[in-house]
Amino acid sequence: MNIVEFKRIDGRKHDEFRPIEARVGVLQKADGSAYFRLGNTVAIAGVYGPRKVHPRHEEQLDRAILRTRYNMAPFATTERGRPGYSRRSIEISMVTRQAINPVIFLEEFPKTAIDVHIEVLQADASTRCVGINAACLALADAGIPMRDLVASCSAGKVNGNIILDIAGKEDTEGEVDLPVAYYPKKKHVTLLQMDGIVTREEAKEIVKLAVGGTKKIYEAQKSALRKKYEIEGEKNDIY
């Protein structure tokens, strides 16, 4: 790592996150839900299930199927996005599912579906990471049996500097973006994507920075979950 700390466009340190905010139980209808914010990137996740599988042929006799849908609201970007499925959203939905899959006890609910819906409401980089963070909270809120939470963030290279949680101008000017998701108990990277040009050493350094960053996300997730279920108790005292 560079010895002299350089200045980032928004004044953050190389390994500093934007403000993190997490809330659990933000929707009525969903069996579990959560809100996650990283600076100006905001996503809400809702979980339905385990529930019956439609269409029926997708049903698995020995486990639940996990379905994820990542969707970006048309107003989430500077220029309006086209609503509905895109190749991008199909891919992100897929890698999101693979990122979350390892921590869920799918075998506990055979013949069912667990549906995770992620809505990105504001996009300022790392939308898939924020979506995964919200999704894991929503899954825990829905009472889905889990081994751990998965925490996600990204790191990258901007003007030759390796930095955590790229955002704003860094995103448009940056050379490399590398999102990861991490399953802390197992020390497993469950999502990793990268685009941009790096040397082998830089690639490894960025991976390490991103993986290290998930620790703070993980703490934010855990305290949001505790808060929701403890607040239920606190609220009661007011009455």
């Binding site: 590398l178 990793l192 685009d195 941009g196 040009i197």
Partner: peptide, 23 residues
Amino acid sequence: VLLCSMQKGGSVGLTVEELEKII
């Protein structure tokens, strides 16, 4: 030789050591 993209797949994770080995 430089890297220009990476994509993890599959439903199990990789350790950082495994990632580095694959790189």
